[in-house]
């Protein structure tokens, strides 16, 4: 199988532990790819059935401007929604737009969640936009994005 580096760009690290450096060039020459590779556009098309998603202030995507550790980037998505049987958030999708497989997680919610919120931590293979697509029970899709910088740092 031909493989392409999962973490192209600044070649980060799918870290085993949090102490790994934010940047490593080790595997860069050998471009690896995985079986799940999917571009950002293809992923959004798959989620929305080709309809696309509209930017909305109802979606609050919280990610740091500068990642403390490219291997552990906290992401929180909150959506304004009453979460009733007739009006709720059906799913929250988190996407790392420049990872080889841009999909990180699809979260299917129900009115029993009470609040439309999901938080997790993702690996980023370099500076890129993190995006969320949100599916509402009325069949519409909303989105929000923010840039996250992954850096080796080193000044003070």
């Amino acid at each position: 199988m031909q493989r392409r580096d999962f973490f192209k760009q600044l070649g980060a690290v799918a870290a085993v532990a949090a102490i790994s450096p934010a940047i490593s060039f080790a595997d860069e020459a050998k471009k690896l790819s995985g079986p799940n590779d999917l571009s950002y556009k293809a992923a959004v098309d798959a989620i929305t059935g080709g309809k696309g998603a509209e930017e909305s202030s109802k979606v609050n995507l919280k990610v740091p401007e500068i990642a403390e550790n490219g291997a552990v980037v906290p992401v929180t998505v909150e959506v304004e929604s009453p979460m009733t049987d007739s009006d709720y958030v059906k799913s929250i999708h988190i996407l790392a737009t420049k990872n080889a497989n841009t999909r990180c997680i699809d979260v299917h919610l129900t009115p029993s969640n009470g609040k439309a919120m999901f938080a997790t931590r993702i690996k980023l293979g370099g500076t890129q936009d993190v995006a969320t697509v949100v599916a509402l029970s009325d069949g519409t899709f909303l989105t929000a994005t923010q840039n996250v910088k992954v850096t080796i740092g080193g000044c003070g």
Binding site: A18, P64, E68, N69, P74, G153, G156
Partner: peptide, 19 residues
């Protein structure tokens, strides 16, 4: 806010900073 990127992370392992 950027203590863990500007300085070695092992000093503050388990703590997160940020703005």
């Amino acid at each position: 806010p950027f203590t863990s990127t500007a300085n070695p992370r092992e000093f503050t392992e388990g703590w997160s900073f940020g703005i």
